[in-house]
Design a binder for these strands. Structure first.
Lengths: 213, 213
DNA sequence: AACCGACTGTAACAGGTGGTACAGTTTGGA
DNA sequence: TCCAAACTGTACCACCTGTTACAGTCGGTT
């Protein structure tokens, strides 16, 4: 299950976490520029001085927020069960997870935020890239290599293949949500998309014309 | 060829166009929030009153800018030659164009801008979606239907297939540029990617397991 | 010469920004 | 009971925002 916040399951007591949590909500909703420290403290009460006691800058606070959210991704991806699993089922399972997290309002808003600000804060772009898309591709690549090795198939440029795969799973769905404020796909729709895309990838691997594997 | 601005080939004389052009540069570079009318007029000289004579709002100016840039997309896509062309060559040609425009700094910055602001200005998101990704998918779908009809192949859900295709062509490349400020691919790299992806699509169509065509 | 429309420069408006300073209050532990 | 640390409220700083108003200045057409 995807929960709204990493820590929303129990009430936050630590002041730093309260600030971080509220700042996350605010930044995700309004973007970096429009979110202000004043708005932040009117939401949680207390004073600016407290905020600046924990975070030296608006920028640092922002970085801490992004990092805390993006860290949910590897956690969520890593606990998908991949042992003693057929290739097709594994691909489906990973695709489902990928779709679920990437299309969730929270992580969609994070992507929006990172894309918008990565040119001003390169650090944030790097952290996001490595822990979200890169990490997912690495997991997929490892799984794919392991599975194809069983059958004695060797894929050329497996990493590139996997990048194409995640693109075909996510790309248009994300743009529809970004641009049209479309709803995230339902669980059954996610299932359908995952199966479809897994089938297509397998078709590509088995056919393998020039350069495809 | 991709030129930097729609009108940069000849010097702009019309004041409205000068404002629009400078505003485009400014918004693309700084984003909606950080771009200000003051910055705009210090770049082009003149006075705020002139700007507000042509555009009633910052928001309207922004919309006009986005619309003027996004309109370059269909123009650029539509003039790819698709008559008396093999399927593979057609797919390659379209993919090349798609990659060229979508990864160009100008249109990458536009995408960044639209993604960042679409939730605050839904109109802009809609216009972008229809004239860029939607239009490209429509062109591709039409071409694919026409080509497969020749061979008596019937693709199920061709639109969805095409959306997957554009995703596999673009997605990861765009995220690399968004997050890591990576350079756009070179012409030869674009060629390689286009060929590879066209081959993969054809492989998918020819294999066609459950749901793939 | 007279006129007009397009343009400019400057100033003002109310309101918001990130960030700091400081005096005062609450809290929890010894 | 005392103390220190954490927190709060308020006021302040310099600066920037979008937007309007207004008086003035050009270039070109009748």
């Amino acid at each position: 299950m995807l929960c709204k916040t990493a820590k929303s399951s129990r009430t936050l007591t630590n002041k730093r976490d309260i600030i971080l949590d509220a700042a996350a909500t605010l930044f995700l909703k309004e973007g970096y520029g429009a979110a202000s420290i004043n708005k932040l403290i009117t939401r949680i009460g207390g004073s600016k001085a407290t905020v600046y006691g924990y975070f030296e800058n608006k920028e640092r606070l922002f970085a801490a927020v992004v990092e805390s959210i993006v860290d949910e991704v590897p956690v969520f991806i890593n606990d998908v069960q991949l042992e003693d699993v057929e290739m097709r089922d594994g691909l489906i399972a990973i695709s489902e997870r990928l779709l679920e997290i990437a299309t969730s309002p929270r992580h969609l808003a994070l992507a929006r935020l990172v894309i918008a600000e990565a040119d001003k804060f390169p650090e944030i772009g790097r952290i996001y890239y490595e822990r979200a898309p890169r990490h997912i591709c690495d997991v997929l690549t490892a799984f794919l290599k392991e599975q194809t090795a069983k059958d004695g198939i060797k894929i050329i440029r497996p990493q590139e293949l996997v990048e194409s795969f995640t693109g075909m799973v996510l790309h248009h769905q994300l743009f529809r949500q970004f641009c049209l404020d479309a709803s995230p796909p339902s669980t059954t729709e996610i299932r359908r998309l995952a199966v479809r895309n897994a089938n297509m990838l397998i078709a590509m691997i088995n056919t393998a014309p020039a350069g495809a594997r």
